[in-house]
């Protein structure tokens, strides 16, 4: 464990204001640490990594870390990432989005990125709420939960990000939590190395906006809840079924080798240009 924090500091932009903007107990810092450890473990040069972020709390992550970073518009991070990856397929493009970012305003881009299997890694930091704007309901807010815009409880069902990305054709789909940091390192590393479109949904607690309104006394309560309400998918009898006790399965849900769009495109191009010569 000795060098964990040390190596993270090697990747931070120390000319930025620290501590970072995230609230006390916010899971996003843990995910950022996990992401840095994964990139480090894979031995990727900083120059080859592009971190594309959307708008919202998760969007602020990009500025702190010394990769090529692009802070884009709300919901559209994947479209920029697609352009960057197609323009320079050598780059490892990682897209950080929140649940509102990726699933509400950017839902269309998410399913199409999955469908075309573009070689981008989507990290969806699901805190079940719009944090930056003050705690409004998102498309991942569980039914019945309280937010600023659902003061009497949300009437709508929450998206299951894993199910949707699987259905849309993503070739690597996983779910982790901020509490299970070691597992999260593994999930993010495999996602980054995966050739096609990879999605990692991370349950990342928002104690300030979501927790307080929904009977969590503090950040610690939320992590305890994550600890006891999740179950490793590989330990389930039937991994395709959701557990009866309502626990959230975490782990890898799909991992199939399929060439990414950029690979297929440049393969086609080589073929066409060979014919043309």
């Amino acid at each position: 464990m000795a060098d964990v924090t040390q190596l993270i500091h090697d990747y931070l932009r120390h000319n930025k204001k620290f501590p970072h903007v995230f609230c006390a107990g916010c899971g996003h810092g843990i995910v950022l640490g996990s992401l840095i450890r994964s990139v480090h473990a894979l031995g990727l040069p900083k120059d080859d990594v592009v971190l594309v972020a959307g708008i919202g709390c998760s969007g602020r992550m990009a500025v702190y870390v010394d990769f090529n970073t692009v802070h884009t518009t709300h919901g559209r991070a994947l479209t920029f990432a697609t352009g960057i990856k197609m323009a320079n397929p050598r780059l490892k493009v990682i897209c950080v989005m929140g649940d509102g970012d990726a699933m509400s305003i950017g839902g269309n881009h998410l399913i199409h990125a999955a469908r075309r299997n573009i070689g981008v890694t989507a990290l969806i930091l699901n805190n079940q709420i719009y944090g930056m704007t003050g705690g409004q309901c998102s498309s991942a807010t569980p039914q019945g939960d309280i937010s600023m815009t659902t003061p009497f409880g949300s009437l709508e069902k929450a998206f299951d990000i894993v199910d949707m990305c699987k259905a849309a054709g993503a070739s690597y789909v996983a779910r982790g939590t901020s509490f299970h940091a070691i597992q999260l390192d593994r999930l993010i590393s495999s996602a980054i190395m995966h050739p096609g479109f990879s999605v990692v949904e991370v349950f990342s607690p928002c104690p300030t906006q979501y927790g307080r309104k929904n009977k969590f006394r503090n950040a610690v309560d939320m992590y305890k809840w994550l600890k006891s309400n999740t179950v490793k998918v590989e330990t389930l009898k039937d991994p395709t079924q959701k557990p009866d006790d309502g626990r959230i399965p975490i782990g890898v849900f799909r991992d199939v080798e399929e060439p990414g769009l950029e690979e297929r495109y440049f393969e086609l191009q080589r073929k066409l240009m060979g014919q043309n010569r």
Partner: peptide, 21 residues
């Protein structure tokens, strides 16, 4: 590189991304 995107918002996003690259 040619890519058909899912809408004009995405088209413009991808175009900016490529320009940055």
């Amino acid at each position: 590189v040619f890519i058909q995107m899912e809408d004009e918002i995405a088209s413009m996003g991808a175009t900016i991304g490529a320009s940055l690259a």
